[in-house]
């Protein structure tokens, strides 16, 4: 399955700004830590279909972690 919203999880600092703006509330934090020691944000595979590709998350991300695609 191709993902609509992709996170470069190694660069994520779990600031949650993406979570705050997602209209579909599908972004979550992983329980595992990334190399930086943060719980990176991601969209579970089962929720990718719910993504409307609005890219609000990407626009708010201070770390250019997020890329968004439209099917």
């Amino acid at each position: 399955m191709e993902k609509r919203v992709r996170f470069n999880e190694d660069h994520c600092k779990s600031c949650e700004l993406c979570i705050g703006v997602c209209p579909k509330k599908i972004i979550r934090l992983r329980t595992e830590l990334n190399r930086l020691g943060y719980h990176p944000a991601f969209v579970p595979d089962e929720d990718q279909e719910k993504c409307i590709s609005c890219a609000l998350c990407a626009r708010m991300c201070p770390d250019a972690v997020i890329e968004v695609f439209r099917p």
Binding site: E2, R4, N8, D10, H11, L36, S53, A55, A58, R59, P62, D63, A64, I66, E67, V68, F69, R70, P71
Partner: peptide, 18 residues
């Protein structure tokens, strides 16, 4: 898939200190 938003080329691919 068509890109809606991708990482800008003019940013280096490093984690910022911010």
């Amino acid at each position: 898939m068509n890109p809606v938003y991708t990482r800008p080329k003019s940013l280096t691919n490093v984690v910022t200190h911010y």
